[in-house]
């Protein structure tokens, strides 16, 4: 009797829980993307426009670029929207992605404490700044998480001819976490950190940190978008996914990206090329 009552209770709870989450059978796609696009608030801004127009819900899982690509390799995403050209081209070459389209860019910046122990504030040359940081053994916090930003940071160290591994445990610290936690750490330690501008602009816990280096051409940060290859993963929603990609590179989508601002600052700059834009327009 009492057992039956509790079983009934459980059944009721389970059935309400099971039915509730996807109650309106909505069309949706899963996009593997990066923390920089999600946390900066860009997605919230542009996805509303897209969803209103098409009725397709876009579910964004925000990870580092490396993890996002791995997630797509496993077949857990329909579309990848990331920012590490080298890794993206490898992804395409392996056959996991259909075609890489460039969508937008912003730039990386170097932030650091106002006290500026490496004396690099106001400079433009990122390689020179790196050399001075290493020379002064000034604290530097890296993400160390195979993200697009981490990959760019490491490429630049290489270009500067420095192996930051020599500073590991002393001035070079890897947090192994996302951009936000890494900036939190840098703020706490008064260390330099390499970040994308979008995350920085939306980041609130800056403490003593300010931008110290920006404007170097090498700090260019390109975002690309790819449909996961349905030939590799048959369940990929290729029509819905393609619809999203088409929209992002369309005039409409590009305008939505350009329209996202924090205060007066535009965070991302659309640069989808005309010739790669879709032939057919949505609607």
């Amino acid at each position: 009797m009492e057992l039956r009552r509790s079983l009934l209770c459980a059944a009721v709870i389970l059935s309400t829980a099971a039915t509730a989450p996807d109650a309106p059978a909505q069309k949706f796609i899963t996009v593997a993307s990066t923390t920089s696009t999600e946390q900066s608030g860009l997605f919230k801004h542009i996805l509303l426009v897209f969803e209103k127009k098409t009725g397709i819900q876009v579910r964004v899982v925000a990870l580092g670029t490396g993890q996002a690509l791995d997630m797509a390799r496993r077949g857990d995403a329909d579309v990848v929207f990331v920012h590490d050209k080298v890794a993206e081209e490898k992804f395409i070459a392996e056959g996991y992605g259909v075609r890489r389209l460039e969508v937008m860019y912003n730039d990386f910046i170097l932030v650091g404490p106002k006290s500026d122990p490496a004396k690099i504030a106001g400079g433009k040359d990122i390689l020179a700044a790196y050399k001075r940081i290493a020379g002064a053994a000034a604290p530097f916090v890296s993400r160390g998480d195979r993200s697009g930003t981490h990959a760019a940071e490491v490429r630049l160290w290489k270009a500067a001819g420095i192996d930051p591994a020599i500073g590991k445990g002393t001035w070079y610290r890897e947090t192994g976490s996302g951009m936000g936690p890494t900036l939190n750490t840098a703020a706490g330690m008064n260390a330099y950190a390499f970040t994308d501008r979008g995350t920085w602009l939306s980041f609130k816990n800056r403490g003593e940190l300010v931008i110290v280096v920006q404007g170097d051409k090498r700090l260019f940060n390109q975002y690309g978008i790819m449909l996961v290859n349905p030939a590799k993963h048959a369940h990929v929603k290729k029509d819905l996914g393609q619809a999203f990609i088409d929209w992002v590179v369309s005039a409409d989508g590009q305008r939505a990206i350009a329209g996202y601002k924090i205060g007066a600052d535009q965070l991302f700059f659309p640069n989808a090329r005309k010739e790669q834009a879709p032939a057919r327009r949505l609607e």
Partner: peptide, 22 residues
Amino acid sequence: GNIDGVTRVMTTTIALETSKGD
């Protein structure tokens, strides 16, 4: 996956806001 409006719960929101520095 901490998907906004789909799988975002209190703890993942806390983690997200922490990483946004708020």
